[in-house]
Amino acid sequence: MGFKSNYQGGTSIESPEALLLDLRNRKIEGLLSHQADVLRVYQEKMNVPDVAMELPTGSGKTLIGILIGEDRRRMQHERVVYLCPTKQLVHQVVEEAKNKYDIHPIAFTGSHRKYNPLDKAAYRDGEAIAVTTYSSLFNSGPFFDK
């Protein structure tokens, strides 16, 4: 006899902070106090459509940004684009997210005509965060729209 699943693909995690605690294969124990403070401020303003943050070098922006993006992707069923100034940082963010936080975004660099079709579908279907450069978004014919 086969088993039927009622899984709908959703999650009941109520905040980016709770999401981190739910990531079982993460390599970090938890947030630093200033990271938790930033996420709590975000929670107060989470209905704003575009979010930008500024923190000093080495303060943990990658974790905060990836958690917010993953939370919005899962809870709001939104497509999320995480922007970086350089291709090198795109790949660094993707590797850090995968290896330290157990979140699996996809790097999009170079010509959008050469993007992997499976990666494009995963982003468009809301199955993964896209990580790319500012220039990939703000050029004359971007792949990322809406």
Rank of each mutant, 00 (worst) to 15 (best):
P49Y: 04
D50M: 10
V94E: 11
Y7R: 10
G69T: 04
F108H: 08
F108E: 04
Q76M: 11
P16R: 09
V93K: 11
P85V: 10
P117C: 01
D125F: 09
L39A: 08
C84D: 00
Y123A: 05
L137K: 08
K4A: 10
I68R: 02
K87V: 14
D37M: 01
E96C: 06
Q43M: 14
S140T: 12
R72Y: 11
M53C: 11
H112Y: 14
S59V: 07
I103T: 09
I64S: 03
I106C: 05
G30P: 14
E14L: 11
A128E: 06
K4Y: 10
E44T: 13
F143K: 14
V38A: 15
Y7D: 13
T132H: 06
Q8G: 01
Y115K: 14
Q35V: 11
G60E: 03
P117L: 07
L20W: 12
A36P: 03
Q8H: 05
G126N: 04
L23T: 13
T62E: 01
S33C: 12
T109N: 06
G2E: 15
T133R: 05
F144R: 04
I103S: 12
Y7W: 12
L31T: 00
K114N: 15
V94A: 08
P105G: 07
E127Y: 12
P142N: 11
K100V: 04
I68F: 02
I13D: 00
Q43Y: 11
M75A: 13
G30E: 15
R72L: 11
N116I: 03
D125M: 10
S140E: 15
Y123C: 00
L20K: 05
T62S: 09
D22Q: 15
D145P: 00
V41P: 09
V38H: 08
L31P: 07
S59F: 12
S59Y: 02
A97G: 03
E14I: 02
N99I: 09
H104A: 06
R73E: 02
F3D: 10
Y123I: 04
K87R: 13
N139S: 08
M1W: 13
M75P: 01
L89M: 12
T132F: 04
R72P: 04
D102T: 07
A36M: 06
V51N: 02
A18E: 15
D119L: 06
I13S: 01
S5N: 04
R72Q: 09
E14S: 13
E29Y: 12
K61N: 06
N99P: 02
G141M: 08
G60R: 05
F108A: 03
A107G: 15
K87Q: 12
P49A: 04
T109E: 01
L20I: 05
R24L: 13
T132C: 10
L67T: 10
L39Q: 11
P49H: 03
D102L: 08
G30T: 15
F138A: 04
K146R: 12
T86M: 08
S111F: 03
E17F: 08
L32F: 15
R24A: 13
E96N: 12
N25W: 06
G60Y: 07
A18C: 05
S33G: 02
S59Q: 00
I106P: 06
Q76C: 03
